[in-house]
Simulated scan of single mutants.
Amino acid sequence: MKLLVFGRGGQLALALRDQGAAQGHEVVCLGRESLSIADGGAVAAAVRGHAPDLIVNAAAYTAVDKAESEPEEAFAVNEAGTRNIAVAARADDIPFLHVSTDYVFDGSGDRPWREDDPTGPLGIYGKSKLAGEQAMASAGWGRSAVLRTSWVFSPYGANFVRTMLRLGADRPELRVVADQRGRPTGAHDIADALLLMAPHVAAGTAQGLYHFGGAAPTTWHGFAQAIFAEGVRHGRPVPTVHPIATTDYPTPAARPGNSVLDCSRFLALPGARLPDWRPSLARAVDALLAMG
C-alpha cells in the first residue's frame, strides 16, 4: 500500500514513516517545506501526482497556547487544510484518515467522552480542530474517518516526555498538574491504529468518528512519575514531583480537566486493542536518552 502523509517532521508523521515501512508499505511524507495544506490547489496536485492508496493527515497546528494569539494560522491549517485534503481525496476516490484531538471537548464530568457527546472546545486550538472535523464532514466523502486521540508522546519533536526528562535532569523538585486526567498515547501506537483502520475505511465499513488512546488513564502528575521511573534504568536522578492544581499553573489556553476518551467504537474493529502506554513510554525514554 502506498501512503501519502501530510506532515513530515511531526511526531505522528515520523511514526507513520516508521510503522508504515515496518509493515511493508511505501510512505510518502509531505511537510510545510513542500506545500501548505491551506493551499487547495497544491493539495489537489500532490494527491493527483502521488496517486496513493491511502491519505493520512498528520499535519496540524498544535501550539495550544500560541494559537490564542494566532487564530488565523490555526484555522488555516486545522480547518482549511483538512477540508482541502478531504476534497482532494473525494475527487480522486482515495480513502482518507484524519487525526483530531480530545480538545474538542470541554473536559467536564468524570466519565470518558464518547464520539457522539456534545463538543465544547475551550480554546482556539480545540475550536480549530473541531472546525476541521466539521469541514471534513461537509466534504461528504464516505471513505474517510477521524481518529481523535490525546496526550501524544514519542522520541520525536516537542512533547511532555522530552520536557520532563529535560527538567528532571536539572531540578530536584518539580510541580506538575494533578487534576487533569487523560490517556497518554504513543505516536507509534497511533500509527498502528491508523494502519489497522485503513482497510476498513477503504472498504467503507469504518467511517466517521473514532477515539483512541493508551489503555490506562492517568494524570499529568502520574505520567511524570512514570517517566522518571523509566529514567532510573539509565541512572537518571528522580526529582520530587509535587502535585498541583490547574489553577496553580495558569496558561494562555484553558486545558480540559477530563480528557479521557471512550474507545469502545475503535475496539469494535477486528483486531483492535488499546495498547498499554508504559512499554511505549519505555521505548521513547530509551530513544530520547540515547540521543543525549
Rank of each mutant, 00 (worst) to 15 (best):
H25D: 06
Q23D: 06
L174V: 09
F212G: 05
G9Y: 06
A224Y: 03
E115P: 09
G213W: 07
T251S: 13
Q19R: 07
M197H: 02
Y210A: 06
G9I: 02
G123T: 11
A67R: 02
Y156E: 01
D189Q: 07
A46N: 03
A76K: 15
L147D: 01
T240Q: 15
V146H: 06
R181S: 03
V146C: 09
R111H: 11
D179N: 12
A88E: 03
A245S: 06
L274T: 04
H221P: 08
G271E: 03
H98M: 09
L4W: 09
S69T: 14
E68F: 11
L281D: 00
G120L: 04
G213Y: 06
A178S: 14
K2P: 03
F228E: 04
W141V: 02
D92N: 14
H221N: 13
I37R: 05
R143C: 08
A169I: 02
S100T: 03
R175A: 05
H200N: 07
L269M: 10
S138Q: 15
A51N: 12
G142R: 15
L269V: 04
G213V: 08
G231Y: 09
A145H: 05
E72G: 13
G222N: 12
L14Q: 14
R183N: 14
V87P: 01
V146I: 15
D65A: 12
R283V: 06
L122Q: 02
L122N: 04
R283P: 04
A131M: 09
L12Q: 02
D106A: 14
V27E: 06
A268P: 02
V285L: 01
D192P: 00
C29Q: 09
A76W: 11
A215L: 10
A44M: 13
L14N: 06
V77Y: 08
L167H: 12
D192R: 13
A38T: 08
R48V: 11
D65Y: 08
S100P: 03
A80L: 13
Y210P: 01
M136E: 14
G10H: 01
A158H: 11
V64F: 08
A67W: 04
G81D: 05
L14P: 01
V64R: 10
D18Q: 01
T185D: 06
D18K: 00
A216Y: 07
S138E: 15
L195N: 00
E173V: 14
L3D: 03
L12Y: 02
R83Y: 02
R162G: 13
Y61H: 13
A86Q: 05
A203G: 13
H98V: 05
P71T: 10
F212D: 02
A88V: 08
G49W: 11
P239L: 11
I94S: 08
A44E: 14
M291V: 07
V177Y: 00
A268N: 13
V176A: 10
V152P: 00
